[in-house]
């Protein structure tokens, strides 16, 4: 693909870049903060979390920065009042959908969702908590899947399919009944596709996937490990 130089404006700053890149990539390079949740560098972006929404002049709706490619003379705004309001709404909906109880969560203090809530200054939630009945799958010898903490960002699904190549995970049902499943909704420990690599655990932004050998609050995940791994796999040594 031929790269053509183009100039665009982000938050009033004039930026020169190349075609074929996403708005998110360009923003990151130029130290413009964009909140993300389902994005993980190296794996396919799906625009599922709606946190990276940006305003583009001439486009009536907000566009997700991770799936929108830059174009010449684009005028982008990333931190207007409208966007901040939407980010706050999205975060509140994340918190209200499942049973996110930070104080007893294994990921307390190391959770991307918790960090996001601080970032958008979420002090209360305006929506009724759904308190769904969620299962905890402890059938795997090494790891645990806790649906209570899952935000269905599908990072685990994509990492498993694209990086490990096992395709153990996918998403079943629709709407509030959505659940991450392994194989035919079989317990994780009985999966015939899982290779026990733990990449999904590393990629998970919350306390939904965690290794058994960790006590509460001691979890420390490294999703950038996945991004580094993808880079290293491209190297031909």
């Amino acid at each position: 693909m031929s790269m053509t130089k183009l100039t665009l404006q982000i938050d009033g700053r004039s930026i020169e870049t190349e075609s074929g890149r996403t708005i998110l990539e360009v923003c990151k390079e130029n130290d413009i903060t964009i909140l993300t949740m389902c994005h993980l560098k190296g794996i396919t972006d799906v625009g599922a979390c709606r946190l990276c929404l940006v305003e583009i002049e001439g486009v009536s709706k907000l566009m997700s920065a991770c799936t929108t490619k830059v174009a010449d003379k684009m005028i982008i705004r990333t931190s207007t009042e409208k966007i901040k309001r939407y980010q706050r709404i999205t975060t509140e909906l994340f918190a209200a959908e499942r049973n996110h109880v930070c104080s007893v969560c294994i990921a307390n203090g190391h959770c991307e969702l918790q960090k996001l809530a601080y970032d958008v200054k979420m002090d209360h939630i305006r929506y009724p908590y759904l308190f769904p009945q969620c299962e905890v799958d402890t059938s795997h010898p090494l790891y645990v899947l806790d649906h209570n903490r899952c935000i269905v960002c599908t990072r685990c699904v994509r990492v498993c399919a694209e990086v490990e190549g096992a395709y153990n995970w996918d998403v079943m049902n629709r709407g509030t009944n959505v659940r991450i499943i392994s194989d035919f909704n079989t317990p994780w420990g009985e999966s015939i596709t899982c290779s026990d690599c733990g990449k999904c655990v590393e990629a998970c932004p919350t306390g939904a996937l965690w290794p058994k050998a960790v006590v509460q609050g001691q979890l420390n995940k490294a999703p950038e490990f996945i991004s580094d791994l993808i880079e290293k796999r491209k190297m031909k040594l």
């Binding site: 996918d170 998403v171 049902n173």
Partner: peptide
Amino acid sequence: PLNVLQYITKALKLPPARVFSTVTF
């Protein structure tokens, strides 16, 4: 039935989770 899904999964060489996801969608 589950055994039919397993049969289809094998024949098409698809990941089981993908087939189950499609069925429940």
